[in-house]
Write a protein that binds this DNA or RNA. Structure first.
Lengths: 248, 248
DNA sequence: CGATGCATTGATAGAGGTCAACTGTAGTGG
DNA sequence: CCACTACAGTTGACCTCTATCAATGCATCG
C-alpha cells in the first residue's frame, strides 16, 4: 500500500462526496474531515486487512473495488460483501473485524485514524446518523443476500447477482434507467470470486452464465463484459426480488 | 395483539434493561422512555408485521421469540433472523421493512411510536450510539450467517445453529460457561422453522439431528429439548467458527 | 380413542460438486 | 510477427449430497 498526501483530493471534489459517511456533512464538518483524512492506494490482489489483524483505521472506498470474505480452515471461502466506491470499512467501537478484505482492482481508500474518527462520530451527529443509515442499509443487503444463498437455485443466484450489480452500478453513476432498457456491466469479479460470492463452484457459475447466454438473457463480450438486452427479463430469472424491477 | 397499559413494567425492573436499545441510558433518559413506551403481547403464530406493511412503531422484544423471514412468490422461505429478548425491530429513517415478522411463542414487545422514537434518537446520543452498536452486531451476525448458508454442509449448518443458539441463550442468562461444560437448550423453533433458518428442508434437518444424536454429540428429550454433553465437540462439527469455542 | 399435526425414516431423483480435459486469450520472447 | 507459455474460463462425465415424494411413528387434544 502506498501512502499519499492528505491533500490529494479536496472533499468537495471527492467522487464519493454524496455516497460515503460524509454525505450529510456541511462544509465546516468537511474541514474537520479534511484535516484527519489520508489516502492510500492498493493494487489488485493486495490484502487490505486480515480477520486476525487489529484495525487501526476506518476507511471509505473512493475508487476501485474490494471484497470482504471469510475463509474456513479447510479452504472454503464465502464472500460476504462486495465493496464499491462509497462503502465504509470498519466497526466503530470494536478494534477487530472478523473478515478479510482484499483489493480486486486498483483501489483508492480514504482513511481515518481510529480514535480520531470515533471522536468525530461522537461529536458530529450528521456523521453518526449517516453511519447508522449506511449500516442499516448494509444489514438489509446482508439479509437479502442470505435469502439468495439459502434458497435460490444456481441460475437464480447468478441472475440475482447480475441484477444487483447492475443496480449498484446504476446507482453509483447517479441515475436510474428506464425499465426494459439495455444494460452493460463490467464485472469487477473473476468467475472464481463470483462463485465465492454466490456460494457455488467456478464450474457451476460458468455453466449458468453459459445457460443465460444460450437463452438470450445476456450477451457477453469477453469474460467480464456482460450486456443485458432486457433487464426486466433477467429480473424474472432472479426468483427473489421485492420490487418491480427497474434499475433503482 | 393485546395492548397493555404503559406502566406494566418499570424500565428499571425490565428484564432487557441491559441488553436493549436503552442499555446505556441514564435514569433521566429512562424517564423519557417510560413516558413514550407501551407494551403489546402476541400469541405464538401471530404475524407481527408483514413486509408490505408500513411500520408505525419500533419495538424491542421483551420476552418470547419471533422470526424475521422472507417468503418468495413460489413459497420458498428463508429466515434471516431469530429475534430474542433485547432485539430491536425497525429501521429508523425508513417506514418500510422488507421482511415478515412472526411470533413463535407468546411474545411481549415494548413499543415506541415512530416519530417520537426518531426524535429520541436525534436527541439522545446514548440511544443512537447503542442503536449503532446493536446494528453493527446484527450486521456481523448476518454476515456470519451468510457463511453458514453459503458454504457449510447440512450437518455443519445444524451444529452451527445449535452452537450459536446456545451462545445466545447463555448470553441472555447473563453468563459464560466453562469450556467442555454440558449445555441444555430448549429450541424456540420447530423443525420446519429450523429448516427455513438453515436453508434446508425439514427432512434433511431432522436427519442431521438424528445423525448428531447417533454420534453422541447431542442427546434429545422430546423434539425441542437438546442436551449437548460436550460443547467443544459440537463446535468442532460446526466447521466455521472463529474463536476457540467457549460459551461467550 | 380416533384425529390432527409435527417429527422421523425410507426410497428415489435431481441439482450442483468434483475431477479432468479442452479452449481461448493475453503475454513473452525468439 | 509468430510460436509458446500461462492462466482464466468453459465444457464434459460422473458422483454425492440434499431435495422430493411417500410412509410411518409419536405426541396432544377434542
Amino acid at each position: 500500500m502506498k501512502m499519499m498526501s492528505k491533500t490529494d483530493v479536496a472533499c468537495a471534489d471527492c467522487p464519493i462526496r454524496h455516497n460515503a459517511v460524509c454525505a450529510q456533512c456541511e462544509s465546516d464538518e468537511l474541514e474537520v474531515l479534511e484535516r484527519i483524512k489520508s489516502y492510500t492506494t492498493a493494487e489488485s490482489g493486495e490484502t487490505l486487512f486480515r480477520a486476525t489483524d487489529r484495525m487501526t483505521h476506518f476507511c471509505s472506498v473512493v475508487e476501485g473495488a474490494a471484497t470482504m470474505s471469510r475463509t474456513l480452515p479447510d479452504g472454503r471461502r464465502q464472500m460476504v460483501g462486495l465493496l464499491l466506491p462509497g462503502d465504509f470499512i470498519g466497526r466503530p467501537g470494536r478494534t477487530d473485524y472478523p473478515f478479510d478484505i482484499e483489493a480486486i482492482s486498483r483501489v483508492t481508500l480514504c482513511r481515518f485514524e481510529r480514535a480520531r474518527f470515533e471522536r468525530l462520530i461522537a461529536d458530529t451527529p450528521r456523521v453518526s446518523a449517516r453511519l447508522l443509515q449506511m449500516t442499516l442499509d448494509e444489514l438489509d443487503a446482508a439479509r437479502d443476500w442470505a435469502v439468495v444463498l439459502g434458497r435460490l437455485t444456481a441460475r437464480e443466484k447468478v441472475a440475482s447477482f447480475l441484477v444487483s450489480l447492475a443496480r449498484r452500478m446504476a446507482h453509483l453513476n447517479g441515475g436510474g434507467a428506464r425499465p426494459g432498457a439495455k444494460v452493460i456491466i463490467d464485472l469487477p469479479l473473476s468467475r472464481d470470486e463470483m462463485a465465492d460470492h454466490l456460494g457455488l463452484t467456478i464450474e457451476t457459475t460458468s455453466r449458468q452464465i453459459s445457460a443465460l447466454k444460450r437463452d438470450g438473457l445476456i450477451v457477453t463480450d469477453g469474460a467480464r463484459r456482460i450486456e443485458i438486452p432486457d433487464f426486466d427479463a433477467l429480473v424474472d430469472e432472479a426468483g427473489d426480488d421485492e420490487d418491480g424491477g427497474t434499475l433503482a
